[in-house]
Amino acid sequence: MIEGAKWRRWVYFYIPLGAFIVWLLFPFYWMLVTSVRPDRELYRPWMAPNYAPFWTAHPTLVHVVDLLTETLFARWMLNTLFIAIVSTIISLFCGLLAGYALARLKFPFGGSLGTGIFITYLVPQTLLFIPLADIIRNFQLGDTPWALVLTYPTFLIPFCTWLLMGYFKAIPRELEECARIDGATRWKAMLYIIFPIAVPGILSAGIFAFTLSWNEFIYALVFLSSAEQKTVAVGVTSELVRGDVFYWGQLMAGALLGSIPVAFIYSFFVEYYVAGLTGSVKG
């Protein structure tokens, strides 16, 4: 905390923090204002006398209604939800087991295996989608949710594995040793002792994985083609931008509605999430 005179606190703390918050939240505000702005205001030229870019005097829900009735937005939301949840579950499950093994078990090449898993995370998706597209085609999964459910774990599993590995390493080894002396097998010690303690870590890995798959764009763009299979990110940008015509109101309404589930999850688990990232385990 800043000490000393009151003005110091304002100059070094409140004002910079306030500016930072405004900077971060402005895009969301813009999104909100645009989605409730009537079309006649949206397309008004900037030199018009009554041009007011930062607010609107006539808010309307017409864009939201249009989005829900005239596009497949609801369907996209369901698609995205399904894909994000299933791929998160797969990745968390694999990440838990792999992270535990890498953190606790001694086996040959354990260290290099960990590094290997990490390296796969570093390969850019913009390159990886080319071979993956070939594989998806061979398995005839193109234009189905399974194309994404099975490819998202390629970057989610390394991510979860590493996050959880770090978390497991921070849990004192004695807890598990004590459980094993108490009569638990390694499996039971993991289930009753390690996993419950690692809940904050597991939750933050899950939230991250969910967010990453919710926001994923390039695989969704490449592997899905028909409108009713699309995810929110791809659907909104491909169906509401026709040629050089931007349906700004609906675009922003879609973006706003599409970010609600993630924001909801974050606000719900924020305490666990912070604890998970700062890794505070007390024995």
Partner: peptide, 14 residues
Amino acid sequence: DIAMVFQNYALYPH
């Protein structure tokens, strides 16, 4: 059939 007491107690925090 042993019991052990650890330096850092190793109590299950949850």
